[in-house]
Design a protein around this nucleic acid. Structure first.
Length: 429
DNA sequence: CATAATGATTGGTG
DNA sequence: CACCAATCATTATG
């Protein structure tokens, strides 16, 4: 320590006064091969650098300027730069080119798909709607839910964009700041433009990693929002009365084969303002629950059977509407009601009710009416309510092991009704 | 608040 | 892939 101070002091004031106070002889022999002199020269400069910290700010500034103007400075600077480049670049050169982060790409894609990033307003909401539709199915179903969802999504998008903007701005500010600083320092420090560029790169990388975090959390938020709003399980809405009515009508009028085709499902979906998937769900649930406890559904079955029967009757014969059904929706959801042979049908049904039924005689589309009317008949047959009703009729097509037999083909109506005796007593539950 | 009803999901099957 | 059976989670109801 002592030594240093002494050293510094010994050199204080050397060549201070405004101008390079360096030995005169050096000024001449620039390009010369004056090795000794140059060494001396360099030594001087280094000494001055060493002592610069020991001086007042003004002094230091002045000296800095003096050093800057020194004729050896560019050469020295270049050398230093070269050395630095060699070492630093060799260290960092390996991790220079990084491939586009797959994670980041995934996030970007998702945000784009979700309508968070990408174009503003119009495109965003459109993308959101598309996403919603993709998950939900048909477009114009429950718009109330979706508007709520969309507002929330817009909020997220706004936050995302403002944050992104902030980051971007901060990044730019910081970058320019650092660049200015480095440029400023590059006059006294060996900093090459390449290095500045690398610095900028590093800064950008750091900021982009922050951005990735933002994107990630945005993605999470969107996911949560999605699961909260579009996962209907969370916010389940019961179908409205009309929808269930329509569905039940179809179900009970196709009780022998309650498996709507794809087209039928679409039709029902349209009528009920729900998605095809929901129709499928409904029928799945209905089938299983009906089968599980037929007794419980007896009343319902009779009701719908009666209604459709009435409608059918009204439609076919005298159009007198005694008591109009509560629902304006026509019962003939399937639309293929052919009542021309209603008489025959009725006969068949009667015989069916009487236990011997050759289903092969009846066409499949008629089959539904068989179901319908069968219910009516069994109802008008006047079984006492409740318990015994369970035994009154066993829905055709449901065998003891459960499940409707596969009888979608019109050619042969499968499963003649089991004997009246065979009851689903096991479903007592 | 307990329970039933109900729409949706999940795992398994052919 | 459609369906079934079990189950979950929410909504309606007493």
């Amino acid at each position: 320590m002592d030594e240093q101070t002494r050293l510094m002091h010994s050199h204080t004031g050397v060549g201070m006064a405004g101008h390079p106070g360096l030995p005169q002889h050096m000024q001449e022999g620039t390009g010369g091969t004056d090795g000794d002199g140059r060494k001396q020269d360099i030594g001087d400069i280094l000494q001055q650098i060493m002592t610069i910290t020991d001086q007042s700010l003004d002094e230091a500034q002045a000296r800095k300027h003096a050093l800057n103007c020194h004729r050896m400075k560019p050469a020295l600077f270049n050398v230093l730069c070269e050395i630095k480049e060699k070492t630093v670049l060799s260290i960092r050169g390996t991790q220079e080119d990084e491939p586009p982060d797959p994670q980041l790409m995934r996030l970007d894609n998702m945000l784009l798909a979700e309508g968070v990033s990408g174009p503003e307003k119009g495109g965003g909401s459109a993308a959101a709607a598309a996403a919603a539709a993709a998950s939900g199915g048909a477009g114009p179903d429950n718009s109330a839910e979706h508007s709520d969802y969309r507002t929330k999504l817009t909020q997220i998008r706004q936050i995302y964009h403002t944050e992104l903007e902030k980051y971007e701005q901060a990044c730019n500010e910081f970058t320019t700041h650092v660049m200015n600083l480095l440029r400023e320092q590059s006059r006294t420090r060996p900093i090459s433009p390449k290095e500045i560029e690398r610095m900028v790169n590093i800064i950008h990388r750091k900021f982009s990693s922050i951005q990735m975090q933002l994107k990630q959390s945005t993605c999470e938020a969107v996911m949560i929002l999605r699961s909260r709003f579009l996962d209907a399980r969370r916010k389940r809405r019961n179908f409205n009365k009309q929808a269930t009515e329509i569905l039940n009508e179809y179900f009970y009028s196709h009780l022998s084969n309650p498996y709507p085709s794809e087209e039928a499902k679409e039709e029902l979906a349209k009528k009920c303002a729900i998605t095809v998937a929901q129709v499928s769900n409904w029928f799945g649930n209905k089938r299983i629950r009906y089968k599980k406890n037929i007794g419980k559904f007896q009343e319902e079955a009779n009701m719908y059977a009666a209604r459709t029967a009435v409608n059918a009757a009204n439609a076919s014969s005298h159009g007198s509407q005694a008591n109009s059904p509560s629902t304006p929706n026509s019962a003939g959801s399937a639309g293929s009601f052919n009542m021309s042979n209603s008489g025959d049908l009725f006969m068949s049904v009667q015989s069916l009710n009487g236990d011997s039924y050759q289903g092969a005689q009846v066409g499949a589309n008629v089959q539904s009416q068989v179901d319908t009317l069968r219910h009516v008949i069994s109802q008008t047959g006047g079984y006492s309510e409740g318990l015994t009703a369970n035994q009154m009729y066993s829905p055709q097509g449901i065998n003891a092991n459960g499940g409707w037999p596969d009888a979608p083909t019109p050619s042969s109506v499968t499963s003649p009704t089991e004997g009246p005796g065979s009851v689903h007593s096991d479903t007592s539950n």
